[in-house]
Design a protein around this nucleic acid. Structure first.
Lengths: 338, 338
DNA sequence: TTGAAAGCGCTACCAA
DNA sequence: TTGGTAGCGCTTTCAA
C-alpha cells in the first residue's frame, strides 16, 4: 500500500506537507504542490479513508433510514428515485451513503443506534415521517444530526423536505373535474401515513368545493386481489365511477390489472390517474396521467440539507417544499381518432 | 464518546482485555467477560469502526459495481432484488455494502479504482458480465478480490454466479409450444449482453427442434415507442404471432402497453410471457407468465461467495448456477369461463 | 511556507 | 488468563 509517508519521502517533503497539499491548504507554495501532486499520481496514491476518519471524526457518509427494507419498499420506484437523488447529491460533495436493511421496527432501532454509536456515519436522512417515531426520539436524545423526507408533524426544530400533498391532490382532482367528471373515486392505502391522509384531504376538499355529484374513498393495500375486490364493489353500484385516482403507483398498476380483467377500457369507460411518475406509469396499459412529485429532487434536496447541517450544526432549520405538476397521458385523453 | 479505554478503566482491566472480550477470544475467563460486557452495556459502548479498520486493514464492506447507475438500471426490479439479496447476505455476516454511482464507463473505472486504493472495501461484486471488461482487468492487475453475477466468458479463474439462461429460455419456449403455438415471436434488447444472447439461443433451438411453423426475433430497447414499432410491424404481417416472449420485464410492460393501444387482448388474441418475476409482472394487465430466475438468490449467493473469498483468498473458485422455473399466470391461460 | 511529533481508538504481539 | 504497548495512516498543532 502506498501511504502519505511514501509520497513524502519520494517528494522530499514532510508528511504534513503532503497532507496539506491533499486538503488544498492555502499556505502551500505552487511549487511544492505541483511536485507532490506529481509524486502522488506517479505512485498511485489514494488517501486511506479509515485513517482520515479516525483523526477527523468525520466519516463523510450519510445513513439512510428506511421504514422497512422490504420488497414493497425497495421495488417502489418512488423510493429508488429518492435514493438515487440522495446518492447523486452526496457523491457530488464527496459523501457516500449507507442504507438500513432492517425489516422490523425493533431491528431498525438497533441498527440506527449501532451506526450512530460506532461513528460510522455523520448524519441520517429519514425516508418517512411518522407520529411519535422512536427513532426521532433516539436521534434527538443523542443530538445526532438528521433530516426528514416527509411531512412536518409536531416537531418544529427538524428539517423536513416534502411535497405539498394536499395541493398536489387538489390539482389532480380539479383536473379530473375539469374533464367533466361528476363521479370520482379515490383509492388509498389503509395504514394512515401522512402522505395518504393529505391526498385524501385534497381530494375531498375539491370535490366538495365543486359540488361533485358523487365521490368515494376506498382503502386497499397494493395487492391485486384487494384491488379486485374494490373494483367488484364499484361494479355492484348503480353507476361505475367515471374517474379513479390512486394515491400511489403500486395501487395504480393493480387497478389497471383489475380493470383489464373486467374489460373496462381506459379512458373510454373510466379515466385513471395517480401520484408519482416513473416508467411504470409511462409504460402502463395505457400510459397514466400522473402528478409528478419529483422524488429525485426530494432526495437531492435532502442530501444537500443534510450535508449543510453536518458541516454547520448551527444552520437555520428551514423546510423545503418540492413543487408538483401534472403530466397528462393517454389515461385521461378522450380518444377522438377511434 | 465512550472508548475501549473508558470501558477498561470502569471494569478495572486493560484495554486489550476489553478488545478480547469483544472479539470473543477464547482465553478470556467467564468472569471477566461478564464483567466487561456489563460495563459495555452500562456505558453504551460501540466499537469505533474507523479505528478497527485502520489496524485490521479489513473494512467489512463490499463494493457493488453497477454497469451504470441510471434509472433504467436502478428501477429495474431485477436489480433491486439482486441488491437486496446481497444486502441481506452481507448483513447476516456483519458486512455492509456500498454501490457505485457512476453513469459513464470512464467515471465508473475511476470510482472503482478509488474505492480499491483508498482501502474503503474488501472486495467487489460485479452486477454484469461483459467481454473484455476494463474493470475486470483493473481488478485482476491489482489482485483485488471480486465475484461476478453473470455469465462466465473467457476467464476461468473468476467466481461467477448465474442462471442457465439458455435452459431457462428453452423451458419457456417449450411451454409455449406445448400450448399449441406455431408462430412465436421473441423480443430482446439490441445491445448484446450475454443474457439476451443466451435467451435468444434457447428460443431458436427449441423452435427448430419442434419444427415450429414460424418464429421471429425482434430487437427493441425498453421504450414504449420502440415496442409500438415492433407491434406495428407484427400487425403488417399476414399473420400476427400467437405468442410473444420478451427477454426482460421492462420490454414486457411496454409490449403490454402497445398491445393495449391496439386493443389486442391477452391471452385471447396473443399469449405473452417474460423473464424475471416481480410485482410488475404479477400486477400486470393481465398478470404475466414468467420464468423466475430468482434474482434475490443470485444476490445472496454472490454475497456469500464474496465473503468466503475475502476471508480465505485460496478458496476453490467454483461457479454457482441458480435454478429457474416457470410461474404460470393469466397471460397464458386460455379463458374458459368467458 | 514547511517540518516534527502527538494522538485519533483499536488490535495484536510479547511478557508476565 | 491478563497487561503493557507499539503502531495502523492520517491530520493538526506548535515551532521553526
Amino acid at each position: 500500500m502506498v501511504t502519505i509517508k511514501d509520497v513524502a519521502k519520494e517528494a522530499n517533503v514532510a508528511p504534513s506537507t503532503v497532507s496539506r497539499v491533499i486538503s488544498g491548504h492555502k499556505s502551500i507554495s505552487e511549487n511544492t504542490s505541483k511536485k507532490v501532486k506529481a509524486v502522488m499520481r506517479k505512485l498511485g496514491y489514494e488517501p486511506n479513508v479509515a485513517a482520515r476518519t479516525l483523526v477527523t471524526q468525520k466519516t463523510k457518509t450519510i445513513g439512510l433510514i428506511l421504514k422497512t427494507a422490504s420488497k414493497e419498499m425497495t421495488q417502489n420506484p418512488f423510493f429508488t428515485d429518492v435514493l438515487m437523488g440522495i446518492s447523486i447529491a452526496c457523491k457530488k460533495r464527496a459523501y457516500s451513503t449507507i442504507m438500513t436493511t432492517a425489516i422490523e421496527s425493533e431491528e431498525l432501532i438497533a441498527e440506527v443506534e449501532s451506526l450512530m454509536k460506532s461513528k460510522s456515519i455523520d448524519g441520517f436522512i429519514m425516508l418517512y415521517s411518522k407520529e411519535n417515531d422512536p427513532i426521532i426520539k433516539l436521534l434527538k436524545k443523542n443530538k445526532f444530526p438528521f433530516v426528514v423526507i416527509g411531512k412536518q408533524l409536531q416537531e418544529r426544530d427538524i428539517i423536513h423536505i416534502d411535497n405539498d400533498n394536499i395541493e398536489a391532490s387538489e390539482l389532480m382532482t380539479q383536473f379530473m373535474i375539469d374533464k367533466g367528471h361528476n363521479h370520482l373515486a379515490f383509492i388509498a392505502e389503509p395504514d394512515s401515513y401522512a402522505v395518504a391522509i393529505d391526498r385524501i384531504e385534497g381530494f375531498k376538499k375539491v370535490c366538495i368545493k365543486n359540488n361533485v355529484n358523487e365521490f368515494q374513498i376506498f382503502n386497499a393495500r397494493p395487492e391485486r386481489n384487494e384491488i379486485m375486490e374494490v373494483v367488484k364493489k364499484m361494479k355492484e353500484q348503480k353507476v361505475f365511477p367515471s374517474a379513479i385516482i390512486t394515491s400511489d403507483s403500486m395501487l395504480n398498476i393493480n387497478l389497471l390489472s383489475a380493470l383489464y380483467h373486467y374489460n373496462i377500457r381506459i379512458p373510454d369507460d373510466v379515466m385513471t390517474a395517480t401520484f408519482n411518475d416513473s416508467f411504470i406509469n409511462e409504460s402502463a396499459s395505457p400510459p397514466q396521467t400522473v402528478v409528478n412529485i419529483h422524488p429525485e429532487y426530494l432526495g437531492e434536496e435532502a442530501g444537500i440539507a443534510m450535508i449543510k447541517l453536518i458541516e454547520d450544526p448551527n444552520i437555520i432549520k428551514k423546510n423545503t417544499i418540492i413543487p408538483t405538476e401534472i403530466i397528462e397521458r393517454a389515461s385521461t385523453k378522450r380518444q377522438e381518432n377511434v
